[in-house]
């Protein structure tokens, strides 16, 4: 099968670029720990209110862990609990969320905190809140009539 010399040059360039992308992503994910949210823990979606840590939603200081705080959210149609929360600037926080009914999104607009929340599963993401301001939390997966009214707020304060 004949291939033009320029096509070979192009494909070598293209494949090399893809390899560079994959290497950057791979090192960041597996060496630096920047994996997409992929928590493997499960929960009974009908017992969310009585299962720790979801029995006490909100921000909680923790000791002896790789992060300083845990920020727990419960999603249900069409609201998040808590509806507003303050996080100290610079805090390393594990955001933990689950749902009591259908699939929801959990997006903190303008940040990398963006995860699917699915019945039966717990979703987690660890990050450092290093920029002050008010951040809108919204549902970005269709969940019913009130989907676009489903919000919360994070204030990162000094």
């Amino acid at each position: 099968m004949h291939m033009h010399k320029f096509e070979k040059v192009w494909l070598i360039f293209g494949v090399a670029a893809l390899l560079v992308f994959l290497t950057v992503l791979g090192v960041s994910a597996f060496y630096l720990g920047n994996q997409p949210p992929s928590c493997l823990a499960t929960i009974d979606p009908e017992k969310v209110d009585t299962t720790a840590p979801f029995n006490e939603p909100g921000l909680k200081k923790v000791e002896g862990k790789d992060w300083d705080y845990e920020l727990v959210f419960v999603a249900q149609a069409f609201a998040y609990t808590p509806g507003e929360v303050e996080v100290p600037l610079g805090a390393k926080v594990k955001v933990i969320a689950t749902t009591k009914d259908v699939i929801h999104g959990f997006e903190v607009a303008g940040t990398n905190i963006n995860m699917m929340v699915e019945p039966g599963y717990i979703s987690e993401h660890v990050t450092v809140f290093d920029k002050p301001g008010e951040y809108l939390i919204l549902c970005n997966e269709y969940c019913g009539t009130g989907h676009h009214m489903m919000t919360s707020k994070i204030k990162v304060v000094e």
Partner: peptide, 25 residues
Amino acid sequence: LEPGIDPAWKFLQVILTFLVVIPSL
């Protein structure tokens, strides 16, 4: 971005996804 799937398997399919770019190139 969803729970219940190990990130290593996600990454494997990311690699396979990048392979399907080649026929478009």
